[in-house]
C-alpha cells in the first residue's frame, strides 16, 4: 500500500496527468453480478441507459478541477468510477498510472483518491468524531504517535476543534459534513474528490473549508475534483468540466464557461449573480464585458461607465 505522507510532493513543478479518462462509459444496468437474477428477473431494457457516456479528459497533478452539471447528469457516477468503487463498462480510467479496472490495484487506487461523499452518513463510521478520523489514518498506516496530531490538525481545518469526543450521529447536518471532510483531509490523499461536500455549510464555513482545500491544493499539490452546485465555489478553480446527460459538454476556465450563459442555461445551470447582472445590462445595450465572474470585477466594470 502506498504511503500518503505529507512529504513535499516530487511533482510540484511538473504538470503530469494524474487522472486520465479514456472514452469512459458506465451503465448501472450492467452492474449486477448475480447471474441468476440477470437471467430470470431483469428484463434487459431496449436501450441501456448510460449514466456516463464516452467521457474523455485528463487532470493534471495539482490541478483544481470543478465538475458541474444538473441533478442526475452523472457527476457522482464519475466520482465513484475515479475512486474504483465501480468500474467502467467501456473505456479506461488511469489514476496515478493505475488502471482502475485492475482488481489487483483497487485498494491502491482508493488509497490515492480520498472521496467525501454527498451524504456524510454514508461515510462516517466511527463511534466518535476522533475514532472516525483515526480509522482512516490506521488504514493508511499512520504511526500511533503521529495519529492525534494529524486528527487535531484535520479537525482544526474544518472548524471542529473540541468535537473529537462527540458521537457523529449527534452532530448537526453541517457539522457532519465537516467531520466527513476532516476524515479525508487527515489522510492527505494525492487526489481528493468532494462530492457536494459543502452543501450543508453556512457561508463562512463554506469559505473556510474551501480555503483549506485551496491551500492544500497549492502547498501540497493535492489534486482536487470538486463537485458542486455552488457557482461561487467554482470561480477559483483552474478548470471546469461541464457535464450533462452523462456526456462532457465543455471544459475550460471559469471565465470561459461562465461567459457562455446560453450553454449553461441549456445544461440546467446558472452563472454567478454578478455575471447574470452584467448579462442583463448588456442585453439592454449597456457596454459591459461578458467575462465578469466576481464582485470586484463587477465593481470595476461598473466604475468604467459610472465615471463617464
Amino acid at each position: 500500500m502506498s504511503h500518503v505522507h505529507i512529504t513535499k510532493s516530487l511533482f510540484v513543478f511538473t504538470m503530469e496527468d494524474i487522472i486520465k479518462y479514456e472514452n469512459v462509459s458506465y451503465s448501472y444496468a450492467y452492474d449486477f453480478d448475480d447471474e441468476e437474477e440477470e437471467l430470470n428477473n431483469i428484463q434487459v431494457p431496449h436501450v441501456i441507459p448510460f449514466a456516463v457516456k464516452n467521457v474523455s479528459f485528463s487532470v493534471k497533478q495539482g490541478e483544481f478541477v470543478a465538475i458541474i452539471g444538473r441533478n442526475g447528469s452523472g457527476k457522482s457516477t464519475l466520482a465513484r468510477l475515479t475512486d474504483a468503487l465501480i468500474f467502467p463498462t467501456e473505456g479506461k480510467i488511469y489514476v496515478d498510472s493505475m488502471d482502475t479496472s485492475d482488481p489487483e490495484l483497487t485498494w491502491e487506487v482508493r488509497a490515492c483518491v480520498g472521496m467525501v461523499f454527498q451524504n456524510p452518513d454514508n461515510q462516517i463510521i466511527g463511534t466518535t468524531v476522533n475514532d472516525d478520523v483515526a480509522f482512516g489514518l490506521e488504514n493508511i498506516g499512520v504511526p500511533t504517535d503521529e495519529m492525534q496530531s494529524r486528527i487535531d490538525e484535520a479537525l482544526r481545518y474544518v472548524g471542529l476543534e473540541g468535537y473529537g469526543d462527540m458521537e457523529p450521529h449527534l452532530l448537526s447536518g453541517g457539522q457532519k459534513q465537516r467531520a466527513a471532510i476532516a476524515g479525508i483531509l487527515a489522510m492527505h490523499p494525492k487526489v481528493v474528490i468532494l462530492d457536494e461536500a459543502t452543501a450543508m455549510l453556512d457561508p463562512v464555513g463554506r469559505k473556510e473549508v474551501m480555503d483549506v482545500v485551496h491551500r492544500l491544493n497549492k502547498e501540497e499539490n493535492m489534486t482536487v475534483l470538486h463537485i458542486t452546485h455552488h457557482m461561487d465555489e467554482v470561480v477559483n478553480a483552474d478548470r471546469i468540466i461541464l457535464i450533462d446527460n452523462g456526456s462532457l459538454v465543455s471544459t475550460g476556465t471559469p471565465k470561459k464557461i461562465f461567459s457562455q450563459g446560453e450553454m449553461m442555461r441549456k445544461a440546467g445551470l446558472e452563472v454567478p449573480q454578478v455575471t447574470k447582472l452584467m448579462d442583463n445590462l448588456r442585453n439592454n445595450g449597456i457596454d459591459v464585458p461578458d467575462d465578469v465572474i466576481t464582485v470586484d470585477e463587477a465593481v470595476l466594470a461598473l466604475e468604467k461607465i459610472l465615471v463617464k
Binding site: 453556512d202 457561508p203 463562512v204 464555513g205 461561487d232 454567478p272 449573480q273 454578478v274 447582472l277 464582485v295 463587477a298 465593481v299 461598473l302 466604475e303 459610472l306
Partner: peptide, 21 residues
C-alpha cells in the same frame, strides 16, 4: 459575517458601489 453568515453577492456589490459613489 461575525456570526458565520453573509449577504447575497449583489448586496456586497451594491454596498461597494454606494461607498464609491
Amino acid at each position: 459575517r461575525k456570526i458565520g453568515l453573509g449577504v447575497p453577492q449583489i448586496a456586497t456589490l451594491f454596498k461597494k458601489l454606494s461607498v464609491a459613489y
